[in-house]
């Protein structure tokens, strides 16, 4: 099977004054379709830089990155935007929902840039919200009327609404209490198992990482560990 994500010697340098800082250093990595993978590591270990490059928000200084077999280094920034729109979904720690905007309109946002008709936009947004466990009473609510867990569900619905191949979650439970964190992770598991959605997630917490199938450890811009996770979702989710 072709890997969904394939990097070879991926390196990202940031110039700082006269010197350069090596954020990630020759990372070679593969991600199979349908996998649920967690990335762990201390702050400054390069995991966010790596996620940004995988998410086509940033470009590597050297090395190659194939997303679904396409070398993204050759693409223009408009083509990168098209890739993000069609193949990727993002979930952030701070949700990044538009304020004073209903859940439906927040979820519609990615479709606004994808020539979907107004009627289809509304229907698909509604279905995506139902899929993440938000019923009609929350569809007209603004983010400030929703709990943190509900807001993150809206954000997940937004990430899924364009049917992406890969969902990138950057500390998706970082702002949530442990009970709500468990519920959100359960939702990720469900999406991964029932719909075969590939998930790459960054987290600080081992408890959260252990919901995944594989845990990658970053340190000083390199991968220092890559092992299967001990499955333990039942203990928290049930």
């Amino acid at each position: 099977m072709t890997p969904l994500v394939q990097t070879r010697d991926l390196t990202r340098l940031f110039p700082i004054g006269d010197t350069t800082f090596t954020a990630i250093d020759r990372i070679t990595f593969e991600l199979q379709p349908g996998a649920f993978t967690a990335i762990m590591g201390p702050s400054g270990s390069g995991k966010s830089t790596f996620m940004n490059i995988v998410g086509c928000l940033d470009r590597a200084t050297s090395g190659s990155y194939l997303l679904d077999g396409v070398d993204v280094a050759t693409l223009s920034s408009d083509e990168l935007a098209d890739l993000r729109r069609m193949k990727l979904g993002f979930v952030f720690q701070q949700y990044n929902l538009l304020p004073r905007t209903s859940s439906l309109e927040n979820v519609e946002l990615p479709m606004m840039y994808a020539s979907v008709s107004a009627r289809d936009r509304r229907a698909r947004a509604r279905q995506a919200l139902l899929d993440v466990g938000l019923d009609d009473q929350h569809h007209r609510s603004s983010p400030h009327e929703l709990s943190g867990g509900q807001q993150q569900r809206v954000a997940i619905a937004r990430a899924l609404v364009n049917n992406p191949m890969l969902v990138l979650a950057d500390e998706p439970t970082g702002a949530l209490d442990s009970k709500t964190s468990g519920e959100i992770m359960h939702l990720f598991l469900q999406l991964n198992r029932d719909r075969g959605i590939t998930i790459l997630m960054v987290t600080h917490e081992l408890d959260i990482a252990r919901f995944s199938q594989r845990i990658i450890s970053f340190r000083d811009g390199r991968i220092v560990g890559d092992e299967p996770a001990t499955q333990r979702e039942m203990t928290m989710a049930s």
């Binding site: 408009d78 935007a81 990044n96 538009l98 840039y113 994808a114």
Partner: peptide, 13 residues
């Protein structure tokens, strides 16, 4: 942030 989000979900410049 809103602009960044719009770019992340696939809005071209």
């Amino acid at each position: 942030r809103e602009i960044g989000l719009r770019m992340a979900v696939g809005a071209r410049a």
